[in-house]
Deep mutational scan, measured.
Amino acid sequence: ASVAVIAAGTQGNIFATSALRSMRFLQILRMVRMDRRGGTWKLLGSVVYAHSKELITAWYIGFLVLIFASFLVYLAEKDANSDFSSYADSLWWGTITLTTIGYGDKTPHTWLGRVLAAGFALLGISFFALPAGILGSGFALKVQEQHRQKHFEKRRMPAANLIQAAWRLYSTDMSRAYLTATWYYYDSILPSFRELALLFEHVQRARNGGLRPLEVRRAPVPDGAPSRYPPVATCHRPGSTSFCPGESSRMGIKDRIRMGSSQRRTGPSKQHLAPPTMPTSPSSEQVGEATSPTKVQKSWSFNDRTRFRASLRLKPRTSAEDAPSEEVAEEKSYQCELTVDDIMPAVKTVIRSIRILKFLVAKRKFKETLRPYDVKDVIEQYSAGHLDMLGRIKSLQTRVDQIVGRGPGDRKAREKGDKGPSDAEVVDEISMMGRVVKVEKQVQSIEHKLDLLLGFYSRCLRSGTSASLGAVQVPLFDPDITSDYHSPVDHEDISVSAQTLSISRSVSTNMD
């Protein structure tokens, strides 16, 4: 405001104040949320940038038409019409005319000016109207692209899951042992070998009828009888010197917790746990005396209480009078009846079946994303299906024409109403129809010849004498029936064969 007042002088105070007050009108834009329509302006900018070359070309040609039209109309009207006294007036008329506004304040009066105005109007309006069409088509394409992008975003994750499931299904095939990355992934998420051994031990116990592997080994086996189970490696608790092959000598807290839970599941009659010990102070733990958990001091820290809870689970003690015997301790020893080589084939089979199920689920979810969402998608899918159906029908028609023997030239002739090819031409065609016709002709010829021969033979049998045999009239074959199959017997006289037959029969009768 200060700059405006200084620039306008003393009389500019009122002007500056009114100008600043008129800017209050811009507050109405906040009512229509114009300040939060950044996406709309961004869309407009992207459309203009995408079609910038077309817009520049249309505007450039339109500007050239405007300059030439205004100049030529000015030359034609400057002497006869006072409205075109300057080139600026003519340029104003050209702008209003070519933009199809047409105020009518300035019009050419001479015939030359009117002809020039009409010609440049028809030429220039087309170029001035091009930017509107370019922007409209650009907006339509952009909206369609955003629509497809939205659908693509919805299909991206199911497609990625389907590709991942397909690759993992491919890589978990037993015949592709060189693909090891997927197996490394499952090695990292699978439970430890100790848990798998416990699982298979329970399965084997159920197969043995509820007997433990130790009891199965204690059962008497006759001499020479084959053992029911192959000899396997035996594993004891981590306190002993022997372990399962492939295990580490260090046992983690999870393994100890699972070991304690498995020992508690063996039965309360074979294992008696004394009350857990509780320390009397955060600094020292008295293991010899058993106290109640309700006497825990409230001033303990979080670490002390955590250690106390761990001691409740991981440090059970047995009383002296209830101490288990050596046999019970041997039964409680952890027996590992299986090795990694025995378990891994079954584990890989389970993983393979899981990968198949996940692949089928991913495939079903991806197919669900291909379903249409709204009416536009339904129409688009219907149009695509219609085009596909037309293509299939056209391909089927082409194959039928190839089989029947109607080529493209014959199809055009039928469409024009011309006469089709004759039967002889159809026979000569190298097509399925021509071959079928040729075979039918040959079969008819053979059938006719057989009928003639059978009739001749029956007449010979009825006559009974050589004289009557020679008097029999043998009809000749019709050459038209034989089609294109020409037998060497067709052109010979059958009477010669009949005479030869009669001579042979007379000779045979004389010999008798």
Rank of each mutant, 00 (worst) to 15 (best):
I403S: 07
T509S: 01
Q473H: 07
E368K: 07
Y185F: 04
S248R: 10
E337Q: 10
S468N: 12
D304E: 13
P275A: 03
S292R: 08
T398A: 11
P316R: 10
F243V: 03
E326G: 04
D410V: 11
S175I: 03
E321K: 12
A498V: 07
K315Q: 12
D173E: 06
G209A: 14
I379L: 07
P421A: 03
T234P: 07
R459P: 13
Y334S: 03
T291I: 03
D493A: 09
E330G: 04
Y382N: 07
A197V: 01
T277I: 02
R194T: 13
A384V: 08
G464V: 09
G455C: 02
P421H: 07
P231H: 08
V347E: 07
T294S: 14
A165D: 10
E327Q: 12
R176Q: 09
Y382C: 07
M432L: 10
V340G: 00
I343F: 12
E215V: 02
L338R: 04
D410A: 06
L338H: 04
Y178H: 06
N208H: 02
K315R: 14
N303D: 13
T234A: 05
I494N: 12
R307P: 10
F308V: 11
K348N: 05
Q444H: 15
T277R: 13
V378L: 12
K298N: 15
K332N: 07
R305S: 12
T369S: 02
L190V: 10
D423N: 11
Q286H: 10
L360V: 02
P316T: 15
A329P: 01
S483F: 08
S311T: 10
F477V: 14
L273Q: 02
A233G: 05
K270R: 05
T318A: 11
I356S: 01
D322A: 07
V426L: 02
F243Y: 05
N303K: 07
P230T: 14
D478E: 10
V404L: 13
V221L: 12
E492D: 13
S227C: 03
D410N: 01
K270N: 09
M433R: 05
R399Q: 14
L469V: 07
R317P: 14
Q402H: 14
L357V: 01
G246E: 13
P324T: 11
S466P: 15
S483C: 12
T180P: 11
R205P: 02
R194I: 14
D423G: 15
A424G: 05
I430V: 14
S506T: 13
P226R: 09
M432K: 10
T465N: 10
R355S: 04
E327D: 14
I253V: 09
D401N: 09
H486L: 07
R406P: 13
Y334H: 05
P324A: 13
D484H: 14
Y229N: 07
H236N: 03
R309L: 03
S487C: 12
T349R: 03
R399L: 07
V216E: 10
P282L: 07
Y334F: 11
Q286P: 09
P231A: 13
Y170N: 03
D173N: 04
G407E: 05
L196M: 10
F302S: 15
D322V: 14
A467P: 12
S333R: 13
F193I: 14
K441N: 04
A233S: 11
I257S: 15
Q297E: 08
V350G: 14
V474G: 15
T172P: 03
S188C: 01
S508N: 10
A471T: 04
N510K: 06
L190R: 01
S466A: 15
Q442P: 03
G455S: 03
Q271K: 15
T182N: 12
M251K: 14
D341Y: 09
D451N: 07
R250Q: 05
K348R: 02
T369K: 15
G260C: 12
L357I: 05
I503L: 12
R228H: 11
